[in-house]
Amino acid sequence: MVKEIEKAGFTVVQMANLIPVAKTVGANRMVPTISIPYPLGDPSTSKEEQWELRYHRVGVALDALTTEIEEQKVFDVEI
C-alpha cells in the first residue's frame, strides 16, 4: 500500500514495528513504533506516558515528511 501511495506522488511515511518488513516491501521513509498490537502507546504505562510517546513519534513522522532523502531511511525516535 505504501508503495502505491508513493507511486501516485504522495510524500508518505510508514510507522511500523517490523521495520525490516517495511524496508523489504519498499517503504522509503520509516518511523519505528513500539509494538504490533499497540504501535503508539503501551497500555501498561500511564495515559500521560502513552500520549507523550505518541505525540513524539507522530512528530518524528512529520519531520520525516519534510526531510529530503536519497535512499530508504529509518528516522530515529527518542521515546
Binding site: K3, I5, I36
Partner: peptide, 26 residues
C-alpha cells in the same frame, strides 16, 4: 490485493487534494 487497495486509496487521496500520508501498520 494490498497493491490494488493502495492504488484505490491513492486515487481517493488525489481527488481529495491530500498532499501527504502517514501510514501506520501493525
Amino acid at each position: 490485493e494490498a497493491a490494488r487497495m493502495g492504488k484505490e486509496i491513492a486515487q481517493e487521496l488525489q481527488d481529495a487534494n491530500v498532499q501527504a500520508v502517514i501510514l501506520t501498520s501493525t
